[in-house]
Design a protein around this nucleic acid. Structure first.
Length: 115
RNA sequence: GCGGAUGGCUGGGCGGUCGCUUCGUCGGGGAAACCCGACGGGGAGGAAAGUCCGGACUCCACAUGACACGGUGCCGGGUAACGCCCGGCGGGGGUAACCCCAGGGACAGCGCCACAGAGAAUGAGACAGCCUCGCAAUGCGGGGCAAUGGUGAAACGGUGGGGUAAGGCCCACCGCGUUUGUGGCAACACAGGCGGCACGGCAAGCCCCACCGGGAGCAAUGCCAAAUAGGGACCUCGUGCCAGCAAUGGCGGAUGACAUGCAUCCAGACGGUCCGGGUUGGCAGCUAGAGCAGACAUGGCAACAUGUCCGUCAGAUGAAUGAUCGCCGCCCCAUGGGGCACAGAAUCCGGCUUAUAGGUCAUCCGCGUCG
RNA sequence: CGGGGUGUAGCGCAGCCUGGUAGCGCAUCUGUUUUGGGAACAGAGGGCCGGGAGUUCGAAUCUCUCCACCCCGA
């Protein structure tokens, strides 16, 4: 699974479809995931930080940390043909230790894939 | 030393590892758009924020003026412009340094001034009262008065003296109005004369006066590609086409008995306007401009202007500018640990307003102590 | 980027234009009625009028400025 192609979600409709599929919350992040029913093996990922997270600086910080753990974790833990949406949580996403945040994502992925 | 006033500056630093975006050079791939790799350079703020003003820029509309509507409002200057800035004037606060003020007009007109009170506004009023006269006398009636009390945010000038039955009244000063002179570009200030007790407050109530303002906004606007549809309604003649070197000429049909001209009617585009339908992709606009920061010179009290030198300037588009580790710096509990303000560009610029831990510089004022 | 609106008692709304007394309905509390409850009737309490300045003698109301929320248009 070394040659996984990562793509960023841009369409609002994709976000809504993912949120209606499987979801798994942890201390640091909230994960939404959907298995697309096409033949395309591309892994797509999107990031969401609503106004509840804080002001623009807090939202940007949370989104950057989400993007970083996605870059580190997804190439080895993602499954081809899935869409993932990582949602930031108030205070927790920005302040949680980085390794713990990575473990959160790994456990959430495992939980979503097993159900 | 303590307390205070004003105006500036700064907004953690260094290094390792892994990433994002943009530009340049080189190499590779590709028909091209472009993609991949290496090296090198750039990559959030003083408020980037709120969106409260003013412009630049783009499109649309457009003869001018007036009305309507909205805004601004002491005077002078600065500026591309402003509701911003500087200087001055007037008023208010503070022992002072200094700070605050939407600060034009109430004889152009309309309106409002609750409660209380006799009376709340262009010519008034008499509640408690005061003075005097008469009588049938703890009172009643006639006349005179607005100085005193009371109410109120505000009562038709204030204080003092003389005079009076009480008063009107007279005089002086202050205030007000008016006028003259002097200083000042002006707002205004100062001085003198005259007036007579007469002209209350609110225009951030309507309004009047002076000045300013066409509308929309980078999702503006232009081009390309894809996709749907090859639709509908209305309008009419040149900037189009043809001939010609050019001037110039010609360009559908019907009716007015024929032709030209003219008039009327009909048709009508590869043109224009609108509706309906489709697309929510790419490129341009897009970042170097009334630039900004610093130094010096000149003019100016200053805001600022002019000139020279040097430096610097991001352009993303589900939206980059980071993640993580180590050392140092600052703060708090004091082994060890925790924290480091407010806050993230979205076409650009000039202001205003609001948020902001800490550090630092300069000038000035008051008090205390020592010499 | 541009435009409009709302904020008043626990909840939903008047009052603001034209400045002086903040009111209505539901809810709450007390009492009457009932064997008890509900309903009904009578009465009572509850407001720094989103925050801060200003104008005025006086501001929920007028003006400025912040805050929060909602709705439109490109």
């Amino acid at each position: 699974m070394a040659d996984v192609i990562l793509q960023t979600l841009t369409k609002r409709a994709d976000f809504i479809r993912a949120s209606h599929a499987r979801r798994q919350g942890t201390k640091g992040i909230h994960l939404q995931a959907r298995k697309r029913d096409d033949e395309d093996p591309t892994v797509r990922v999107g990031f969401t930080c609503s106004k509840k997270v804080g002001n623009a600086v807090a939202r940007n910080r949370a989104k950057r940390r989400l993007r970083e753990i996605a870059r580190l974790v997804l190439p080895e833990a993602a499954q081809p043909g899935w869409d993932y949406v990582l949602v930031g949580r108030k205070d927790a996403t920005a302040e949680r230790p980085f390794t713990a945040l990575q473990d959160d994502l790994k456990r959430a992925l495992a939980a979503v894939h097993n159900t």
